[in-house]
Design a protein around this nucleic acid. Sequence first.
DNA 1: CTGTTAGCGCATTCAC
DNA 2: GTGAATGCGCTAACAG
Lengths: 375, 375
Amino acid sequence: MNCQYILQYLHKHRIHISTPMAKQIKIKDIARMAGVSAGTVDRILHNRGNVSASSRAAVEKVLAEVDYKYNIHASAISLRKEYKIDIVIPTALGGEYWGAVQNGFEHALHEYRDISIDCRFHYYNQFDVYSCRSAYSELKGSEPDAVIIGPTFVEETIVLCRGLEEKNIPYIFVDSRIEGTSPLTTYTTDQYACGCILGRLLGSLTPKESGIAIFGAKRIGNRKANNSLERKKGFLDYFSSSGDKRSVKEASYSVLNPDDNEEEVMTFLKENPDIKGIAVLNSRGYIIADLLKAKGIRNIIVVSFDLTGNNRRCLEDGSISALLCQRPELQGFNAIKSTINHLLYKQDEPQVNHLMPIDILMKENLPFYRELFEI
Amino acid sequence: MNCQYILQYLHKHRIHISTPMAKQIKIKDIARMAGVSAGTVDRILHNRGNVSASSRAAVEKVLAEVDYKYNIHASAISLRKEYKIDIVIPTALGGEYWGAVQNGFEHALHEYRDISIDCRFHYYNQFDVYSCRSAYSELKGSEPDAVIIGPTFVEETIVLCRGLEEKNIPYIFVDSRIEGTSPLTTYTTDQYACGCILGRLLGSLTPKESGIAIFGAKRIGNRKANNSLERKKGFLDYFSSSGDKRSVKEASYSVLNPDDNEEEVMTFLKENPDIKGIAVLNSRGYIIADLLKAKGIRNIIVVSFDLTGNNRRCLEDGSISALLCQRPELQGFNAIKSTINHLLYKQDEPQVNHLMPIDILMKENLPFYRELFEI
DNA sequence: CTGTTAGCGCATTCAC
DNA sequence: GTGAATGCGCTAACAG
């Protein structure tokens, strides 16, 4: 009769046992058991060399038997090293997508405030590839212990990562994953799947046979963002593989110069009068929704990404019908957390690519998603 | 020109400044500045008395000027007190709703393993009010530092809480909030809103004019669960207040004796042939979905609560169309976390009732919600 | 190579 | 009332 059966039996018969925490074993205990000093145990635990084969064998024998977990608090106070982290992400004002990621960073830095971390932020304009290049080049001289990157442009990021790899500096991605790099971990959502789900939502919200459009943002330097590319692929594949055959048109709009949009978008809609649904492939759905409202157009369904302040407003007033959200605060929080675990405790998550849940927000469940961090 | 303008300016022009962490101030620093010893500062910080008015004034003057935050790690290792927490929740097997809450507890206990916590679990059968009473009575003799309660039955819980209040023992609710009690904090979702959203979902998934049913679980002692009552209210209010007028019938089924359901449910459906949608007001939607499948009934939409193993299976095979989920792991995790913050650091959250987001799960976004804890 | 030792910041005890 | 002294568990530098 093994443990599992016992547990099942206890559960079935509603029997419960109180489980007093096992007394934590300490370095001194191990030293005593192995017949060496605490210093030697510490050297072995941290792979700092200068240990004889016999001592190592004795200690490792003990380690194999007992379940030693060092005390994080004791470790943290005696470990006084200051760590340097560089963070490169797009600029954001409060309430925008990257502002939420930034909140997550700050939340984590606060939670780990008793660990000395010198965190330097470098911002770039996500709609301008040149701005990204210049932010990346700021990292050249820096010798941080780790780098957290919120990437937008593929080639530039690959170059940056090559450089970091040469210098043996670990890096972590948030929001998007770039193929052909080797990050320590990644926090993102499956952007291809996001595209599929968006297709599914828009398909079910609009009448069959109606036309559909996808809108992407114009970027200076005429380069596509990694996420948008993936999402578009998923979106198109959904419609080509499902029974739901639609005409899907593509258009673009400007975030930096919103005044230009009116004419361009209206012309596009006039040329494609069958369009009843628009998918905005980034977090700026409100720009299109506001434009449609201003023009008195009420019969076009808009879906988009991320719970920004403006998107929240549009979801409330019905001009956006659904949003897909990807827990940006949690991504930021976890990026810092796993960086710390890596640097201080050499603990790496087994799972390299952490896929966040894709939350579907509609008017009804919106009130319960606060911008505030849910932890 | 105040700080806000500067920040906006910096943002607008994509200028960033690295913000080195301000050097943390320590007890010794305060002591030196106030011209007293560290011991005295500590006595004041912890309200342990034996301080002269003059010393107190000097120290408080300094404290008002500097932003002192004690080092959590140093505090944790020198504070060797063992805390005792009692937890009373419904029994669950792995993959069930309360199993996820339990996972959250265990996750938190692991994360805070370096703080001595003696955690005793007491389980009861949520479908049997007598079992709940006996679990509650187990707490009688115990003198814990805090109690975490997953309540199901209203009156019994009120009695328990009265007793705890008399003994000045703080308590925390997970999953459900009981009116007329004074918990330290509560982690739950707005169950009334859940009912409304469920109504909205079921309404949009079924043809207009079709009938709808709500299913509740039978409980030994014939007592309703708090959550189901709230959800039912929200569900009914949605249909009476929205334009969507439907006939809503009520029925019940048994979780403990599933064999009894077949006849009863089939009779109910035969008597109400217009029913095209069923809302199961607890986490056992799979029981109804599996029954319908077994009977070859495919034209009735089922919606329910919570991502249990069985509900996941039914969502995948399409026999359940949507689930509302309430982050049970996070609730469990946070319950422990805020208990620790209260006991060790006397830090109480300003917000007493933490409302979790209500996640809408459909077949498409299901793959990205792992049972595993997302942290 | 190895044992000893001196902190880390805080909480608490114990003389004065 | 108060300051000094001790210890929590771990790390790292230092003698030997």
